[in-house]
Amino acid sequence: MSAEDLPKNEANVLKGHEGAVLTARFNRDGNYCLSGGKDRTIRLWNPHRGIHIKTYKSHGREVRDVHVTPDNSKICSCGGDRQVFYWDVSTGRVIRKFRGHDSEVNAVKFNEYASVVVSAGYDRSLRAWDCRSHSTEPIQIIDTFLDSVMSVCLTKTEIIAGSVDGTVRTFDIRIGRELSDDLGQPVNCISLSNDGNCVLASCLDSTLRLLDRTTGELLQEYKGHTCKSFKMDCCLTNSDAHVVGGSEDGRLFFWDLVDASVVSSFRAHSSVASFSLFLYT
């Protein structure tokens, strides 16, 4: 994908939330879109046609993150009500609620087999929940973080999480070790590259940092946007050629992956936009 092909115009506006939208996620194949916001609902959209498909209501407080299984059958979500919800997509019912976080839950993800939900909380912990059994107790609590855990990513064998304590920690289940990469700056959001070799961390010093996962080396820094107090999402494009990040002034930035130059930036939102983008082109 060259710079010219980068999206510039909004394709559709999905209107329906009665309040701030805190998260928006595509499903795996990019055909659907889930969003969660301060109106305590999760909404399922067809972003290509701009259709609102379904609303999931059960959250007691704002929805901070949502994730859908690869087979599109289940959703997990989390938010200010300190619980992780496990939904059935078609019926719209909550299958399970996982309680255990001591405070707000910032991020949630399914694993590869959709058997485990891993949630990251303000209570400095990561918790893994079992979707297969009926237990509502967490399988495991990882509490080595020193501050709120903001974002979590899963691979087939690893749990990667970024925390406000400035670390990106990788928990390798296969080897049984924890790698802590201290960036020195609060980490807002992390995102894996599509080849899985790099992790992109959005730091609160208005910098996106690209780390090599095997060595922990800092590969590149992307600057130009503002990210100082809000959780702004970042990710890499599908071809791993560009880095996408949001700015607190409502702009969207595209950097070249290699030379870290701002390829394009445009105003996407009128105010602070906490957005999530997973481009499927």
Binding site: S115, A128, E178, E217, L218
Partner: peptide, 25 residues
């Protein structure tokens, strides 16, 4: 100085390994 890498031992729960389809190290 940054990024600074540290390595610790971490023990995944048995069930977690099971769910990730991995052998408990």
């Amino acid at each position: 100085i940054f990024p600074k890498r540290e390595e610790f031992q971490w023990r995944p729960a048995l069930l977690l390994c099971k769910r990730f389809d991995l052998i408990d190290p």
